[in-house]
Amino acid sequence: MRKFVEKLSAVLDHVADLSIRIAGIGLFLMTVFIAWQVFGRFVLNDTPTWTETSSILIMGWFLLLGAAAGIREGNHLSFDVVLFLVNDKAKSVAFTISDFVVIAFGMGMVVYGLQLALKTWPTTIPNLGISGGVAFLALITGGALLVIYSVERLLRRAVGLPTTRFSDKLAEAD
């Protein structure tokens, strides 16, 4: 079991690394698009109308990919005061509940994101001409990754492997 979880984590290491790099490219692309918008308005005297809408779409992707990877890397802000006061057993129960909550919310993102995408599929996004449903694809993907990474956390905890948290990093730094 432990072997299997370690293998799974090794695979997910690559997935998370890839997704955070895609997110990084997204942030860079956003920079290029908006810079082009400013350039168009001042220099070409012709403001491109697609830059704003497409940058917003990219932002959705980069933030949901980044946020999902954040679950794995333990980057998310949380309130850890109470956890300092309790023993390891109670802590582990609390973390497990948290992971289930993230799984539930991630599943909500997938299911209801799908519902929204299907409902808005016939509409079009102004200035881009693509389907309005596209706006929800990032939500669905991000939700799926959240579920996968949280299941990984549960498995790791079950077999006694460590899982990272926001507070761990601070403790190390201290």
Partner: peptide
């Protein structure tokens, strides 16, 4: 942000921003 309004201003010879 609407194609029609952008085209309207262009058709009048103005610059839609």
């Amino acid at each position: 942000q609407s194609d029609v309004f952008v085209d309207m201003v262009d058709a009048l010879g103005g610059n839609a921003t």
